[in-house]
Design a protein around this nucleic acid. Structure first.
Lengths: 360, 360
DNA sequence: ACCTATATCCAAAACGATTTGGACGTCAAG
DNA sequence: CTTGACGTCCAAATCGTTTTGGATATAGGT
């Protein structure tokens, strides 16, 4: 069913039918009603390609997911995506999701989407500290919103959650509970979010003049969280608290703690970030930083729509605060104890603990 | 940069440039090389709307995510989506993701996508037993692949994992370990996958002539798994094994077990389904059914491409087998014990257990 | 009755790619 | 030399919508 056929059916011109459906006021109310009814009855839906061709706008917005495993398979990202899709649908936009390996291929996908005008705007997820994607979009003067932040002098629109404040607060909280060795297990710091969380942790250390603490980074998977926590707990003087850059890392850390025969929340405190659904159901339940994912997704769309409407990118920058959700995985610092002490007491129980240098 | 401008630049006709880039063999090799080089240099990318308009094909494939929270926020689904996107990109297709509440709105989205020719084909996720979306696509004779199965006489293309076999096997395994009361905590059975898993559990019961067992269903969230497991453990004669329709339910169940002062894998066995990343890092690690998500995503795309190439839907049906990954959450059945026994023994320990009728 | 303003409708052009149906040379075979 | 085949290129039509710039009719004011 095309516009022409619908027009013939009604004995009207395509022009009038088009304008009736688009809601112009140079169409009599009675005519419009007839047109709308007929369109409904005959199931007329304007051909998207033709409309987009004529108007030069695709009514679609793009998001590129890094195709690497272990990156974006965070449940929260699907939630953000769903929120974006839903809010976009309300505004009569579709969501185009492309998958690409970070690097060369990723940029090529951006080029294709933008230069082919497949989308009217982009949402850039998981910004990096130095982000060629953002530079590309700025060069093209293409509308885009960044979820997160990046390092650039040129203005751009972004929405981010204040990971610096969240991890500074979390660190201060742990310190107030008596912890002196608060290790950080983080995602690689070329991700801006990881960089900020680390900076917050460092800032708290500086404020309290705490001694330098241990720091490890790897892609945010449970496996890496497990491995890095195991390494940290095997140190001669292990940390009493593990601040984890994401909940997935924290979940791995919790398991490492249990396997070391320790109790999270008592022997070792753990704080995560994301408040994944699983965080309420770990043993003990995870203290973590909650972010309003759904609202963030919706806000990203609203900012992009504002950009479409002519808003300046530099006027669209928002920093939201996360919220610490206290559950059972953190608590007061235990008595000062090194692994050498532990080894001595538990020696005959055959503890399998990574042997460290035994000098002194 | 348009085709015309590129043609003028080269002193060729748009026809020749178009055919050179499309790889037709009525263009001299030398000419083609020149054209390709110039296109590269000037950054020419064909306008997607114009090309789609002319050819009548959009080179996009649609997936509709139910926008309800607690449904699709399974990490595995993002992995499937990523795999679909990546494989689609290899074939020069884009992925259009729409979000809609199941029901009326969902069907409207399908109608818009299909009738506006916004996509060339659809992938239907999480099939339901009676699925109006599938009926709609069949009516329209529109190319689509179903991830899962549905109940219909008309042929359609699908890829599914054999949940019946997986849960039959899991139940037999538990029974072989001495379990006699194997409860099922499942997703609602209007989801075909849940229906099949339940059927497998029932089949094993029938084969072994086990007494009828407890069965509970709710949306597959940790919270529901937790609640339902708590209820089941509070029965006068509680089950010794919990078969969980998804890992998210299982994660909730594990917590309920721990909170009841029991040990999963010893007092109560738990088996899940999905092999989420978290399954290796619960305490104890979860015995569960692994599915090849990434391969499934890729296969879905390949089937859809086959459909585009003219294959008959009835020739594109595949049932894959899941694989039981044995970890620590299941084990031999404990000695027969009712909650009344427990109550008697632990009475003075002040166990908070939901009191049941105390007749007999 | 005439003019103007307003309400309603429409013909035709335009968007940028692909494809159809040749045109024009060149070369080999007859 | 003629003919047919082939290799290479192109003019023009086409897809379905939106928009521009009127056309026509009606009503109201003088």
């Amino acid at each position: 069913m095309t516009l022409r056929r619908l027009a013939d059916e009604l004995g009207l011109s395509p022009t009038t039918v088009s304008r009736a459906l688009a809601g112009y006021d140079d169409v009599a109310a009675a005519t419009r009603a007839k047109v709308v009814r007929a369109a409904e009855r005959l199931g007329y839906v304007p051909n998207a390609a033709a409309a987009g061709f004529r108007t030069g706008r695709s009514r679609a917005v793009g998001v590129v997911l890094p195709a690497q495993p272990g990156h974006f398979d965070d449940p929260f990202f699907l939630q953000v995506l769903t929120a974006i899709g839903r809010r976009l649908a309300e505004a009569d936009f579709d969501l185009l999701v492309a998958a690409a390996q970070p690097g060369e291929a990723e940029l090529k996908v951006y080029r294709r989407l933008v230069d082919a005008r497949r989308v009217d705007g982009m949402i850039v997820a998981r910004a990096r500290l130095d982000d060629e994607r953002i530079a590309f979009l700025q060069d093209r003067d293409f509308p885009f919103i960044v979820h997160g932040r990046t390092r650039t002098k040129r203005p751009y629109a972004w929405l981010d959650i204040d990971g610096h404040a969240a991890f500074r607060d979390a660190t201060l909280r742990l310190a107030a509970a008596g912890h002196r060795r608060i290790a950080l297990i983080n995602a690689p710091d070329h991700y801006t979010f990881a960089h900020h969380r680390q900076a917050g942790w460092l800032a708290a250390h500086a404020e309290l003049a705490l001694p330098t603490a241990e720091f490890r980074a790897a892609e945010a998977t449970e496996e890496n969280g497990h491995r890095l926590a195991r390494d940290l707990l095997a140190l001669r003087v292990p940390p009493t608290a593990l601040l984890c850059g994401t909940d997935r890392l924290a979940v791995g850390a919790l398991r490492a703690i249990a396997q070391a025969g320790l109790v999270a929340g008592r022997d070792v405190s753990v704080i995560g970030y994301d408040d994944l659904p699983v965080a309420s159901y770990t043993q003990p339940a995870l203290t973590t930083v909650a972010q309003p994912w759904t609202q963030a997704g919706e806000k990203l769309v609203e900012m992009l729509l504002a950009l479409f409407a002519g808003a300046k990118p530099e006027s669209l920058c928002e920093l939201w605060q996360g919220k610490l959700v206290v559950r059972g995985s953190d608590g007061p610092a235990p008595d000062y104890k090194t692994n050498e002490d532990v080894k001595t007491t538990h020696a005959k129980k055959g503890e399998k603990r990574h042997a460290q240098t035994t000098h002194r």
